[in-house]
Design a protein around this nucleic acid. Sequence first.
DNA 1: ATAAACTTTCAATAATTATTGAAAGTTTAA
DNA 2: TTAAACTTTCAATAATTATTGAAAGTTTAT
Lengths: 167, 167
Amino acid sequence: MEYQEAKDKFISTWGSLGSLWGINKAMAQIQALLFISTKPLSMEEIMEDLKISRGNTSMNLRQLMDWGIVTKTLVAGERKEFFTTEKDVQELARIVAVERSRREIKPVVKVLDEVSSIKDDGTAKTKELIKQTKALHELTETMDVMINKLVNQKQNWITKSLLKLFK
Amino acid sequence: MEYQEAKDKFISTWGSLGSLWGINKAMAQIQALLFISTKPLSMEEIMEDLKISRGNTSMNLRQLMDWGIVTKTLVAGERKEFFTTEKDVQELARIVAVERSRREIKPVVKVLDEVSSIKDDGTAKTKELIKQTKALHELTETMDVMINKLVNQKQNWITKSLLKLFK
DNA sequence: ATAAACTTTCAATAATTATTGAAAGTTTAA
DNA sequence: TTAAACTTTCAATAATTATTGAAAGTTTAT
């Protein structure tokens, strides 16, 4: 496999994985492109390489910056903006985990808490709703705590966690 | 909040969470409905409760069965089929984790392995591609091992894991 | 065998989500 | 200032994904 083929394969795989995880394709592909780039890229270069429009590139770069995965970099002597992504995989994974916790898990925990706190009117169906959503609430909250715990180990968190689990 | 409102809120939240995670809305809603039901439900009842068509119900029930989350149950004296979902949250989480590992993570690990194994032609961009995809490969594989490790503790795996991590 | 009761399939359609591109907005250099 | 260089916004459109519903398929009881 040649460089170009490998590159395309990586970008497209990362893109479809992204959309499977609620991150849109272009966003994932831009990140992938920056991830394997040896230097910061301009909007122009990204558009050209991925064959996507200026508008699309602009919007998705913004989202990536909102996630804290991509940052603007100044390139000496250049007027236009250049972009880079976090290059350390562990730090990348940390950011993604924290963001997903904040955006997706926490709101669900809140709803589960509300739903499981309704007044028990004594009927079987109400009891079941309360019981099951309580269990789900507890699970989701535990998972969230776990993620945040894992992720706050900073240095080498994945390896450290793995070791603990294997004991 | 009354029973019906709480039920609707739970089902719709679970539904949108589902679509955020690459599971379609109807599929997640059917599972949610079964999860809080006090008895097995027929296709008829599911259709009616969620206001979705027969075809949609049939297809999504099949998917839920493929995932191993929903099972057909025979109800004495009834000809039609009835459905139930796994009611234990920890077991449910285990099944989902194993399935996602199989369906999503493993194929990506494979691609990353292929891409990171291309011949190093000495250019900077090839070196960078290899380096970064290798790092991603290692990360993804470690995470996959971690998930499978977590999940194979069977009994009370989440609590057990949390304890280990807190030490 | 037949027909009623039920489930599945799948082409057509609807709903949702992503993408474009050009106009509006902003920044910088001279 | 002004105008060129650049970025953002957003209504229109395209692409994708989900849903319907009716015909075809299957099972069961008689």
